[in-house]
Nucleic acid binder design. Sequence first.
DNA 1: AAAGTGACGCATT
DNA 2: TAATGCGCCACTT
Length: 111
Amino acid sequence: MKKNFKEQVFEKVGKIPRGKVATYGQIALMLGKPRGAREVGWMLHSNDDHNVPCHRVVDRNGRLAPNFGGPSLKSFGRQAFDGAKEQKRRLEAEGVKFIDNMHVELKTSIL
DNA sequence: AAAGTGACGCATT
DNA sequence: TAATGCGCCACTT
């Protein structure tokens, strides 16, 4: 259980204001790693701290992380993505607008 | 230590 | 919401 990177990632994600989302790439950029997008998402899946609103983190297209469509997939099925429905509802509750069932308005990104 | 892995990003097909 | 391949960086075994 290292720290460093994860800590930084969590901090950035935790700083995302309510009603906004951030992309892995942007977070990575903030950490000084323009190509570290993967690592950002990785920390989240590896650590999935319930204090970190992973659901506010989307990919560069504004799409949410792959939910694998159902809780049957033990791979993730975490509180972060309890299900596309759940996640969408959650983000909408915070003021994030969806352009599709899986896409949020990138205009709502922190950048 | 080396290889494998991965919730991405971008170019190409 | 194409799919595939390559690159990047950190973590695990």
